[in-house]
């Protein structure tokens, strides 16, 4: 039993787009919970505006969106812009799902911090988040 984290990382997980595949996002939610994080799930068929609004109300550190139905080259940059405009551009923005290699530069340019595609190991995602958090703490302190 690991000690309970006094200040757990808060992560919003959302599904952008019209698909209804929840297996991937469910697996990630459980992995993050097991790693001691608070996962806020907002459900299916979310728009970028809904995700941004929920991320702000919940004051999460990380916004993770899963997208499997194309449209991500528009929806993800929109989400990044909405967060920035609302003064919440410091949140880590992660994307997952089906994202073709050739879309990466555009998304990274638009403000997506990291892309985990199909088959990504949940342990890698947890390790990445813990590392991100450690460096951010140093910056803050």
């Amino acid at each position: 039993m690991q000690p309970i984290e006094e200040r757990p990382l808060r992560v919003l997980l959302a599904k952008l787009g019209m698909d209804t595949h929840t297996v991937g996002v469910t697996v990630i939610a459980h992995a993050l919970r097991e790693a001691g994080m608070e996962v806020i799930f907002t459900g299916l068929k979310q728009t970028p505006a809904m995700v941004a609004s929920a991320a702000i109300q919940e004051d999460v550190d990380v916004v993770g969106v899963s997208t499997l139905s194309a449209g991500h080259t528009r929806s993800l940059p929109t989400l990044a812009r909405l967060l920035r405009e609302a003064g919440a551009g410091d949140k880590l923005l992660l994307a997952g799902g089906v994202i073709p290699e050739e879309d990466r530069p555009l998304l990274e340019e638009a403000g997506v911090d990291r892309i985990f595609t199909m088959g990504a190991d949940t342990r890698d995602i947890v390790a990445y988040l813990n590392q991100w958090r450690a460096t951010r703490r140093e910056e803050r302190d």
């Binding site: 039993m1 919970r33 790693a35 001691g36 994080m37 806020i40 799930f41 459900g43 979310q46 809904m50």
Partner: peptide, 20 residues
């Protein structure tokens, strides 16, 4: 979770119509 200290908070799913 008393074991990991993590949680899955899913109540928003049923309140999605009020998000905006």
């Amino acid at each position: 979770s008393p074991f990991s200290g993590g949680a899955i908070l899913g109540d928003r799913v049923r309140m999605a119509r009020h998000t905006l």
